[in-house]
């Protein structure tokens, strides 16, 4: 169990949250969790332990069966699908394990997409902000390329730029290095951390890697749908 600060202060809070996929047993059992502004937290755990599900609930991609999820102070349970989507696109950036870039858009257009969806910025401003964000992840020269022309590491850097470009309060990263080799993974992770620090947003990272997790402010472990704090000795030995 994990508790910190109040719901109002937290960027994300989950209270006694339970969830089951249709036709399956419960994946999360009464999870309580809070993420403060600017805080960077990692959740580690085995495959199928429920850590990605927690991320999906936090993003409002799934609705909790029980308990409450508050995102940026708003209770998701009280919002309809469209309102949840509006809240997500304004306050959240997501980095997926398998990048999820839109293959029919160029690199620049992929990064412009959240700005088009979430802000009222004009075309020129969108282009300028996206280009700046791409430059920040070191891909200024790849703007006009399509995702299929990039390496895996480059694609994930585009995904990071896309997640950050509209300056969300929270970045949700689901195994961002899971599809990359260790060297590229290390580079991408470092870039993610650097960008998160630079923008001051919160980060909730789901990963298998204890090594990466230890580099964040706090590490939690998910075991059979139950979220637990990790003491420093456990973290160090992992």
């Amino acid at each position: 169990m994990e508790q910190q600060g109040s719901v109002e202060d937290a960027v994300l809070s989950l209270t006694d949250v339970a969830f089951a996929y249709p036709g399956e047993g419960e994946v999360l059992h009464g999870v309580d969790f809070e993420l403060g502004a600017g805080e960077r937290v990692a959740i580690v755990g085995e495959s199928g332990s429920g850590k990605s599900t927690l991320l999906h609930l936090a993003a409002g991609l799934e609705a909790a069966d029980r308990g409450e999820v508050h995102l940026a102070g708003e209770a998701l349970a009280g919002l309809d699908e469209a309102a949840r989507t509006r809240l997500r696109r304004a306050r959240v950036g997501i980095v997926f394990q398998s990048f999820h870039l839109i293959p029919t858009l160029t690199v620049l257009e992929n990064v412009m997409l959240p700005l088009e969806l979430a802000t009222k910025a004009g075309a020129a401003e969108r282009r300028e902000r996206a280009a700046r964000q791409l430059a920040a992840v070191g891909l200024a020269d790849k703007e006009a390329r399509y995702p299929e022309a990039l390496s895996g590491g480059e694609q994930q850097r585009v995904a990071i730029a896309r997640a950050l470009v509209h300056e969300p309060a929270l970045i949700l990263a689901d195994e961002p290095t899971g599809n990359l080799d260790s060297r590229t993974g290390e580079t991408v992770f470092a870039l993610l951390l650097e960008q998160v620090r630079a923008t001051g947003c919160s980060l909730l990272l789901v990963t298998h890697s204890h090594e990466l997790a230890r580099r964040l402010d706090r590490v939690l472990t998910m075991r059979d749908g139950i979220l637990q704090a990790v003491d420093s000795a456990e973290a160090a030995s992992a």
Binding site: A59, L61, E81, A82, T85, R86, R88, R89, A90, I94, F96, H100, L101, I102, P103, T104, L113, P114, L117, A118, R162
Partner: peptide, 16 residues
């Protein structure tokens, strides 16, 4: 479907 789900996760409304 995967592309549409990505767009939705990035904030495209069902109407979009």
């Amino acid at each position: 479907a995967r592309e549409f789900a990505t767009l939705r996760s990035l904030g495209l409304l069902p109407g979009g």
